[in-house]
């Protein structure tokens, strides 16, 4: 069995340590004897929509985000839409999440178009939402760190990833965090999110393998360190907000 991972815009959308998510997917697959190949892709690279099981798309700075948004309007955007439609799994965070939606509306200037595989749109906000978060989801509670000024709103085709127990969430209004549409996941969860939420990591791993290998039973792992980090982060979230 082999898991093909695409690290989208690895050199432009890589702030806030989101690389931890790739490391986590890779290690948790390898510890179960599953081969992993990570392709680091960037502007100008051709994306083969049939090749990858799991796409990771992280956060970037404003300037980089414009470059990426521009690239997504071409060949790459079409390939990603096709991959999403065929059931590939996407984990997209912060800037990546915003670009999976319909558009990002900045304070001034024109809307930055996304690729619309998530029925969400984002509007620039004045106040930055920063801090530890806890999100209640169908996969269990997630602990993470948010750091965004964009406010994201969901349309009818997307459902929230979960409910903000601690933190601002998508838009500091409706008490929700993230979005799911098909196998595309978007959220504002840094930290990195997957290392200390192994239950969510395994859900994504299982989902990623499903397309090519059907229902794969994942061998259980000793997650005592992961869950200790999960509990400590939960404690810090309540203590700091």
């Amino acid at each position: 069995m082999k898991l093909e991972i695409a690290f989208l815009y690895h050199d432009l959308m890589n702030i806030y340590g989101d690389r931890g998510n790739i490391i986590t997917m890779t290690q948790r697959a390898k510890w179960r004897g599953i081969d992993v190949n990570v392709s680091s892709l960037t502007v100008g690279d051709k994306v083969d929509p049939d090749k990858y099981d799991f796409y990771f798309f992280g956060g970037g700075q404003d300037k980089e985000q414009y470059t990426v948004a521009d690239d997504l309007q071409g060949e790459t955007g079409r390939a990603l839409k096709e991959a999403a439609a065929n059931g590939a799994v996407f984990l997209t965070i912060c800037g990546g999440y915003q670009l999976m939606g319909h558009y990002y509306r900045p304070d001034k200037g024109k809307d930055i178009p996304g690729i619309g595989v998530l029925d969400v749109y984002t509007v620039a906000g004045k106040k930055r939402c920063i801090g530890n978060v806890i999100v209640e989801t169908e996969f269990g509670n997630l602990v993470a760190f948010e750091n965004h000024s964009g406010k994201t709103f969901l349309g009818p085709k997307a459902r929230p990833l979960g409910k903000s127990v601690v933190g601002f969430g998508n838009n500091a209004k409706d008490g929700q965090e993230g979005a799911i549409q098909g196998n595309v996941f978007g959220c504002y969860l840094h930290g990195s999110v997957l290392p200390k939420n192994p239950h969510f990591a395994d859900h994504l791993l299982q989902l990623s393998l499903k397309r090519r290998y059907g229902n794969v039973e994942l061998a259980p792992l000793d997650d005592s360190i992961e869950m200790a980090a999960h509990r400590a982060a939960t404690k810090r979230a309540y203590a700091t907000r």
Binding site: Q27, R231, A232, R236
Partner: peptide
């Protein structure tokens, strides 16, 4: 305060 996050990072 983040001893466990660090331990987890080393594991990975």
């Amino acid at each position: 305060l983040r001893a466990t996050d660090m331990a987890n990072r080393l594991k990975y």
